[in-house]
């Protein structure tokens, strides 16, 4: 079986794929990248937390015109996962205003990106209608 790697380092693959964030132990603010101090309270202590895999679409755009190399159309969305906002591309849904709506329920899904010359497969996340 070929080796898999996550497309970004805040995606954890395995039996129960999920996203992780660095949570400020002082105020609970969450960050998908590293911070020297918390942007909200300046605390310097963080712990890893798992992000829920279900959420609702709180904003979206159907992008039909993008930079060269970016496949269009696609649905860019901001998903509210129980209080933590996640940026994503929606998957397994037709990119049309009739099929995507504000407030729709979605869940995390895995999206294969490709395989490199060493046989390593990159796997991305998206959200799909729940």
């Amino acid at each position: 079986m070929s080796k898999q790697i996550p497309f970004v380092d805040y995606l954890v693959l395995g039996d129960k794929p999920h996203l992780v964030a660095n949570e400020c132990t002082g105020c609970g603010a969450r960050f998908f990248d590293r911070r020297n101090a918390c942007a909200a309270c300046f605390g310097t202590s963080f712990k890893k937390v798992d992000i829920g895999t279900e959420g609702i679409v709180r904003a979206f755009s159907i992008v039909t015109f993008a930079a060269p190399g970016v496949k269009v159309p696609f649905v860019s969305a901001i998903v509210d996962c129980n209080g933590t906002s996640v940026r994503c591309t929606l998957t397994n849904v037709e990119p049309s205003p009739e099929q995507v709506s504000l407030g729709m329920k979605v869940r995390l899904a895995l999206v294969p990106v490709g395989t490199d010359d060493e046989g390593t497969e990159a796997v991305n996340y998206g959200f799909e209608p729940a």
Partner: peptide, 29 residues
């Protein structure tokens, strides 16, 4: 984010029309 490729289109959008579309849609939500 330790990305192994370009995220534009794969994890949402980087383009200004798309970002600001979401700003307006969020208000609607």
């Amino acid at each position: 984010y330790g990305a192994v490729g370009s995220v534009d289109g794969r994890i949402g959008t980087d383009s200004m029309p798309g970002v600001f579309a979401q700003v307006g849609m969020e208000y609607g939500h």
